[in-house]
Design a protein around this nucleic acid. Structure first.
Lengths: 196, 196
DNA sequence: CGAAAATTTGACATGACTCAACTGGAGTGG
DNA sequence: CCACTCCAGTTGAGTCATGTCAAATTTTCG
């Protein structure tokens, strides 16, 4: 499959697959293109695929009992997106994944995922490492939320992901940072003043 | 190794090892007993082992620039403890792991970890699943911190881990919940009043 | 029993939220 | 090319959740 090239490159950074393994892998995954606004996953549905983003941008979020939207993560090229909890346990998801731009993805369907990893132990290894990374950065985020102020979190976000702020509306960034859009507006004003 | 029994039972819940694999596994891991107050890992050191807790209780925490202690997690029997980020990348850790009681653990040393998982693909699978779980619960914690009040988080903690509050001092629970000990004290008073 | 540690209490401070009004740009249609 | 609307972003006043500090009380444990 032509479109799988970036995924194969990405995998090669962690493990080395044989040509046969690559062919097998490619036979089990799907390419798909979503338009801006479309949902890859909706709260309450079971996540049937794990997605590798080729291009575009997605947000993963959930809506709480008060109707408030909370963004868990954004995903751009070479990142993953999906509710892993729903995917591995095949239980209804608490999250939505929605495309903020036209977005191309490679999808691993659940019904071949486990079998594929068993058939290709190197791929099992690959996913173990990917999930290790995800877990580590998730833990880091918990720490930051505890020990940093909203302003510090905002500044750090721009250091860590310098390219993302331009691509998303400000109210979504506020949601990701765990603050209101009004408060983010005030923070930005302060930061701008300090830099001048 | 006699003491590895609980670990083997735990592993069997996820994958089925052959007797030969169990022997190989046991030859690569170590039993160790720590006393109350001892450190399994200190901030700045590289984490050389991944620990499975047999008995006792540990806290994982870090000290921020203001000297404030933030507890990331507690671990009791049948849980894991270690800074996975430091362990897999072999970089200095941001965290401490300290024993709150006399604690027995099984340790996977780094220098045999990757080789062991390669030799026993089922073990690779096992760890992938364990880490998946850890990642999922880490994400859940992020969500809770965003969408719940301190009081709700406290109540939920006791629902999720009913046995832990009795084993740890209150100021540590406050640190885990991300609030001050004074505020937790006030919350507990309120909750007690409501239940009467 | 006495000292040290943990917890509670109260007064006050502050970071972040709510709500409502306002501004300013990006279509859209006439 | 203007008027209208719509949405994102801004501003300000008032409020609430939680933090700070210091003192009082209770618990733990040698």
């Amino acid at each position: 499959m032509e479109q799988a090239k970036p995924l194969l490159n990405y995998i090669q950074k962690h493990v080395t697959l044989t040509p046969e393994e690559e062919v097998l892998l490619c036979s089990k995954i799907n390419y798909r293109k979503y338009l801006k606004g479309q949902y890859i996953l909706q709260q309450g549905d079971v996540s049937t695929t794990q997605c590798f983003v080729l291009s575009g941008c997605t947000k993963m979020f959930f809506v709480d009992d008060d109707g408030q939207e909370h963004i868990i993560m954004f995903s751009i090229a070479d990142w993953w997106t999906s509710d892993l909890g729903s995917f591995v346990a095949q239980t209804p998801s608490d999250f939505n994944v929605q495309c903020l731009e036209t977005t191309e993805v490679i999808q691993f369907p659940y019904n071949t995922y486990e079998a594929l990893l068993e058939a290709i132990p190197k791929l099992e290894r690959f996913f173990r490492k990917i999930i290790e990374q995800a877990f580590v950065s998730s833990q880091k985020r918990i720490i930051r939320n505890f020990s940093l102020s909203a302003k510090e979190r905002y500044v750090l976000f721009n250091l860590n992901y310098p390219h993302i702020e331009q691509r998303i509306p400000q109210y979504m960034l506020a949601s990701y940072l765990g603050i209101t859009k009004e408060f983010l507006s005030k923070i930005k004003k302060e930061v701008a003043k300090e830099q001048s």
